[in-house]
Simulated assay, not measured.
Amino acid sequence: MSNTKFTSEHEWLRLDGDVITVGITDYAQSHLGDLVYIQLPDADTSYSTGEEVAVIESVKTAGGIAMPFDGKVVEVNAALNDEPGVVNEDPLGAGWFFKMTVTDTALLNGLMDEAAYKDYIATLG
């Protein structure tokens, strides 16, 4: 998973060519509990950094995913509409939320790698 980066908001981003796949971490899904609803962003739509692009509802709470960088959503994981629990079962794989493109993939270099993310969540208690 060397091409996977993590945010302090518990999202993961995986670069494949010039496309970035975005999802939430195992830490995030375990703290949210069983997911019951996911509102995905619109494909072929551009979003600004920090703009909420997805809504997540669980048995415990509701939250959202913010756009990590200015970019365009190019694909969404439509399977999550019918099966949001896939995120609980496989958050770093089949439970991805959307794929996006950005003008500069080097932006990922400013995010945490897996070891740094593990250290970060260890400080959260």
Score class of each variant (00 low, 15 high):
N3A: 14
T123N: 14
A79H: 11
L124M: 09
A78Y: 11
W96Q: 12
G95K: 11
S46G: 10
F6P: 03
A94L: 12
D104L: 06
T123H: 13
T49Q: 15
V53D: 00
V36L: 05
K60N: 02
F69W: 11
V55W: 00
M1A: 09
M67P: 01
N77I: 07
M1N: 11
W12Y: 12
A79D: 14
G33N: 05
Y120S: 02
E83H: 12
D42A: 07
Q29Y: 13
L15N: 08
P91A: 04
T25A: 06
D44M: 09
F98W: 02
M100L: 14
A78N: 14
E75V: 08
A54N: 00
A106F: 14
G23Q: 04
A94Y: 08
I20L: 15
V53I: 09
L40A: 00
V86I: 13
D18T: 12
V74M: 14
G110N: 13
G125F: 12
K72F: 11
S2K: 13
A28G: 04
N88V: 02
N77E: 01
L32M: 09
V73G: 02
M100F: 12
Y27N: 03
G95W: 06
Q39W: 03
N88S: 03
K72Q: 12
T101V: 15
V59A: 02
A122P: 01
E83W: 13
G17M: 13
L13Q: 06
E114C: 07
R14C: 09
G50V: 02
Y47M: 13
A115P: 14
V87D: 02
A43D: 07
T123R: 15
A54Y: 00
V86P: 00
K72T: 05
T61K: 06
S58M: 01
K118C: 10
D42Q: 10
E114G: 07
T25W: 05
T103K: 15
P41V: 06
G93L: 15
P68K: 09
N77P: 03
M100Y: 13
D70A: 11
V59D: 01
D16F: 09
K5E: 05
E51T: 09
S48E: 12
L92D: 13
E83C: 10
G63L: 00
Y27F: 06
V59N: 01
Q29I: 02
